[in-house]
Structure formats: C-alpha cells, structure tokens
Design a protein around this nucleic acid. Structure first.
Length: 590
RNA sequence: UGCCCCGUGGUGUAACGGUAGCACGACUGACUCUGGAUCAGUUAGUCUAGGUUCAAAUCCUGGCGGGGCAACCA
C-alpha cells in the first residue's frame, strides 16, 4: 500500500507515527506497532514520530511518558534511530496560511541531528490550540454544534446499531450561538458534562460512530502537560487525524478496532478543506501471545494486585520487563518481523519469541559454568592442595570471543540433576561406576555416594579422575556419553538466581470461563528463587544487564535492580532446549 | 439483531488469476568436550456450496465460523 501511494504520487515521502497514550507501560504488542511504524519509515527512507496521545488527563501521567521514551529508544537503537523524529522541547505547531487556507504544521527534528537542542516527543496536547481553531472552523461551516444534552440523553438518543438515533434538539441552533457557547465552554463557564461539541453528520447512519459523535467534552482537570490551561479536552476521534495532519503524517497505522472509526477520521479531515495532503489510516491486527495477557487494564491489575512486583517484573510482557529479563532488542525486532502484519486475529506461540531470543543470545553471549543446585563432588585421588587452571572457550559460535581460565581443584560442585544413584533409562550423566567428562578438565568415574545418616539424602559424591585425560580427552580414544559442568568449591562465587516460567499456566488466559477471572490461571510457579548457587569466579565482577549462557542450563542476565557487587542476582532469560527433559516427560507419561 | 473486518498445516505468515512456499513447533537421523548449536529428513494446510475462467487460495454469490463497533476512554 505504501509502495502504491509512492508510485501514484499521492505522497512524496513517508511519515508514520507511533502514538501511545501515556497511561501505561509499553508491551510486546506496542513493540509490534513500533516495528511496523519505524520499519515502514526505514524501508522507504522516511521518518517516524513518537507522539504522546495525551487527550485524557484523567488517566495519564508523566511517569508513563518517561518509560515510553526509554522503551522506544531501547527498542530501535542501532536499527531505526536515523528515522526517529522528535521536536525541540517546547515547540508548538506553527500557524500559517497556504493559498488563503488555514494550516497548522509542526516541524520535526531527527533524533540523530539534534545539534545540541533538547528534544522531546510530540504531544497531542501541544495541538490543543490548533484543534480548538479547527473546531471553531467546523462550527462556522455548520459541521459541528454545541449540544446541551446530558451524557445519559446522548447515550439514549444514539439509538441501537440496528435502529437510527434521534437528533439532538440543539442540532440546528445557529452557528453564532454554537460559536458563543463553545468559546464559553473553553472559558470555563460550564461545569463538567453539561455541554459537548458534536459533529453534525447523520443520526441514522448504520455506522454508530457517524451519529453526531462528541468532539469535545468539558473536564475541569489538571493535565500533566498543559496544567490548568484547558477545561475542555478533545476526544480521540476528533484529535487523532488532526494530530496526524499537523505532523505531516502520510500513513496512520492503528489496530483493528478503529476500522469502524475510519469514515469519521476521513470525514473530519475532509470537512475542513485543508491545504496539504491528508494522512491515511490503515488497520492491522493486534498481537496476542500464548501464556500471557496483553491488555493494559489487565497488566495494570497484575501490578496493582501484587501478582507481579512491578511493571518491569521479568515475567511481564512489557518492554521493560523483557529488557530486565534479558531479551535483546534485536530478538524482539526479529520476532516482530517474522510474525508479519495482517488483519487476521492471531495468537502467536511464545516459543517463536523464545526462538529468536535464543538465536540472538546463542550467537553473542559468553559461555560460563554455573551450578544452580550444588552437589559436592570430591575427587578422591586428586591432590589435596592442588589447583589447576583450564582454558575454556567463551563462545564456540564466535572464536573472536577468545578463552578464559577456570580453576579446578579436589572439591567441586556439580548439578544435583547431573547425578543419579539409580540412573533411569537413557540417563547418560554421572552415576555409580559411570565415567563422564568434567568439561574442559578430566574424565572422572563415580566411586561412592555419601548420604545423610538421618534423612538418607545424598550430600556428597566421590569419584576418581584419570590424570591421563587432562583437558578432557582420553589418549586411548575411549568415549564418554556425557560432559557435565562444574565449579571449584574453593573458588566459587555465591549468587541468587531467579528462574522464570510463564506467568499463566494456560495458553489463553483471556478466555477465562464465565464467573472466572484471568487471575485464576496464574502460574504459581512462575518464579522460583534459588539461593546458594555457585558460579565460576570469572563472574565475580559481572555488571548489571550483562548476559551469559550458563552452559547446559540456559541464558541468564545480571538483574539491573537487585544485583549488588559481591551479591550478584541473575535472571534466567530463557532455558536451553532440553531434549533430556523431553525424554523424561515422555517416560513419565508411560 | 444492523454495519464493518477476517477465514491457508498445531501456530504465525507468503503466493501479477498460473507448481501452495517460509518460519516456529512436533517427530527421525547425523554430528558433537553444552542432551546446546549445526546439518539432513519427516509430518501437516487453502472453512463450505455454487458460479466465472483454459486455469481460482486469489474474482462473484450464498452458507458456516471467528472478531470488532452502540464512553463525554484510547
């Protein structure tokens, strides 16, 4: 479509916009919209405006503005910054005339070319004056009128979808009277809800949005950007297309539910005889993901009711949550690219998102050894005080990432999961009499199991090593079935590790059965906190946000909120694919 | 109920009216000092009934199914 518009000469450049309302945090659904809008701008060498659609002071807050700016920057950094347009802080649209026709226009500044000027997002609230002027013009043209009906009356008179509405008795009052009343609405002469400005369209239209929709309402409320300057605020349907127009937007992409609003979007634009090309609205289906919810209302409830700790809780599908969880922005973008844009309702599998996260992390994150649930392994025939260092590869996918040295000694920790006194079928790891490889170190054979005399719990495993297998290869060419990771007890770094699982235990928490709430299907095991985890010493100075692969376990990142030097906290971003887990699952089913 | 939109493998998404393709998942196998990665392969799809056409996922009509819309929210 964009290509067609360019080819036909309808527009000579592409301008899109991402227009969130600052009443919540951005989530993966917004990420899709961001990728669409910035992606189109990028593809056609255009630009994309970040705009706060702040026309309802009751629900909005600057806290959200700040988070939105941060999230957008994070998501597009290194990808679309060159088409990211903002405006100088405090700039307002310029009032001008083109061919004798009234026009408002606001000039963008590319984020990469600020030239020292302070920049900020566009704000719908910056256009309140322009919007007001346009409203006056609408009244003069007989296309809008002030209506004195109460909200209840208006609601009733709208009729039903299959029944025409009733015309307001104020519909035909004179232009002069409407003008006067509207000016007095602005002046604050009337209390909330007493009057509205309405478009004069068609009360019998089969499209309910064309039945003289409300354009302005009276709200004596303080706005987070304009303070108390206004007591009338424009409705979304009135404001949005003019916001697009003022910014010179060519393509206005929004979600499906606005499809029925499109005739209104176009009607308002055409009602005014505007001198520049008009923006065009097109719709696409919003994103749904399995095992999560996406509506701002539900996300807000999760936060407010304490089901998660915050908007950036790593279990949240918010952009900030994903960032804290360790998802790379590249992975989120690759995901958005793959899911495509269409008008069909969809529920994308979480596994697709995780695929891109693993794909990105696999190529770029350094490998490291960490033991989450430690089990002592004593190498009986290894000298008591000896310490050796082995070279470990940082990333087999990228030789340029080099190697590091890992200390080895007589007492090690291995993963509890990597030892079974009685191995189940197909279990290749350590068990009595079995030889395995300690990664990068030696081949060891399990000789003994030490149990707590009281509880019978395995507290220690003994083994012998073969000195000839130094580095991990046997000179006689014998093979072992398994390689396990380990950490030298004396050198280990102690850490807390948080394991995350899906927030919900059902694929689609949105369709809770009647009488049930989506919170009923919350997964009680979505967070498991492990303390006393043992990490290899190279992790002692890991910086917040740093991402690693813990070999054989998954990808982990240093938590940006709770990690402290000397007391590191790691979040599991996503586990490695685990065929052993699959085998186990299958065995359990039998 | 009125209007609008949408129906392609389990999931998501492609295909000027001309061989239904790609990705994820699942399943086999190969390889492996990560039961990771990689590689090879298998599985499985045009909602339905008519019509137009040499030819229909694509165009037309009906049916069926799903979704949206009746805030002074966005």
């Amino acid at each position: 479509m964009v290509r067609q518009d360019l080819a036909s000469g309808r527009v000579d450049g592409v301008v899109t916009r991402f227009p969130p309302e600052p009443n919540g945090y951005l989530h993966i659904g917004h990420a899709k919209s961001i990728c669409l809008n910035f992606g189109v701008a990028r593809e056609f060498d255009g630009r994309c405006n970040l705009r706060m659609d702040d026309t309802n002071p009751a629900t909005e807050d600057v806290e959200y503005v700040d988070s939105i700016v941060e999230d957008v920057n994070w998501l597009i950094a290194g990808w679309a910054d060159h088409c990211f347009s903002l405006k100088p802080t405090g700039a307002l649209p310029e009032r001008r005339e083109i061919d004798g026709r009234l026009d408002y226009f606001i000039a963008p500044v590319m984020a990469t070319q600020s030239l020292g000027r302070k920049l900020e997002p566009f704000y719908a609230s910056d256009y309140f004056e322009a919007l007001y002027e346009y409203a006056l013009e609408l009244i003069r043209r007989g296309k809008a009128y002030v209506c004195d009906h109460t909200p209840e009356e208006v609601d009733f008179m709208r009729g039903a979808p299959d029944q025409p509405g009733l015309e307001s008795k104020y519909r035909n009052r004179s232009v002069a009277e409407s003008l006067d009343l509207f000016q007095r609405m602005r002046a604050g002469e009337f209390p909330d809800g007493t009057r509205t400005l309405r478009a004069k369209i068609d009360m019998a239209s089969p499209n309910v949005w064309l039945r003289d929709p409300v354009l302005y309402r009276i709200r004596h409320a303080s706005h987070h950007q304009t303070g108390d300057a206004w007591c009338i605020y424009p409705m979304y349907d009135y404001a949005h297309e003019f916001e697009d127009y003022i910014e010179g937007v060519t393509h206005s992409f929004c979600t499906l539910e606005f499809e029925v609003h499109r005739p209104l979007y176009e009607w308002l634009l055409e009602a005014l005889d505007l001198p520049r090309p008009l923006p065009r609205q097109r719709e696409f289906a919003r994103l749904n993901l399995t095992y999560t919810v996406m509506s701002k209302r539900k996300l807000l409830r999760l936060v407010q009711e304490g089901h998660v700790q915050s908007w950036d809780d790593p279990r949240m599908p918010t952009v900030s949550g994903m960032r804290r969880r360790g998802y790379p922005a590249e992975a989120v973008r690759a995901f958005c690219d793959r899911i495509g844009v269409a008008k069909r309702e969809n529920i994308v599998e979480l596994s697709l998102l995780e695929h891109f996260v693993r794909d990105e992390l696999n190529r770029h994150s350094p490998r490291v050894m960490a033991v989450l649930r430690p089990l002592r392994l004593v190498i009986e025939n290894y000298p008591e005080d000896q310490v050796e260092e082995f070279a470990a590869v940082n990333n087999p996918e990228d030789a340029a990432m080099g190697t590091r040295r890992v200390p080895f000694s007589r007492v090690l920790y291995i993963e509890q999961d990597d030892f079974r006194e009685v191995p189940p079928p197909k279990y290749h790891r350590l068990s009595p009499g079995v030889e395995v490889r300690l990664r990068y170190a030696y081949l060891v054979t399990c000789t003994d199991v030490v149990k707590d005399p009281q509880t019978g719990e395995i507290i220690e495993v003994h083994a012998t090593y073969d000195p000839a297998t130094r580095g991990g290869d046997a000179p006689d060419g014998r093979k072992v079935k398994s390689t396990i990771h380990w950490v030298s007890a004396a050198h280990a770094v102690d850490a807390e590790v948080r394991l995350y699982d899906t927030l919900f235990s059902v694929e689609n928490p949105d369709d809770a059965p009647e009488g049930r709430d989506f919170t009923d299907t919350l997964n009680p095991a979505s967070l498991e906190t492990l303390r006393g985890c043992r990490l290899e010493p190279s992790l002692a100075n890991a910086v917040p946000g740093a991402r690693y692969q813990f070999e054989r376990l998954g990808y982990f990142c240093v938590d940006t909120q709770d990690s402290r030097p000397g007391a590191p906290v790691f979040n599991r971003t996503v586990g490695l694919k685990d065929t052993w887990a699959k085998i186990q699952k299958r065995q359990r089913k039998r």
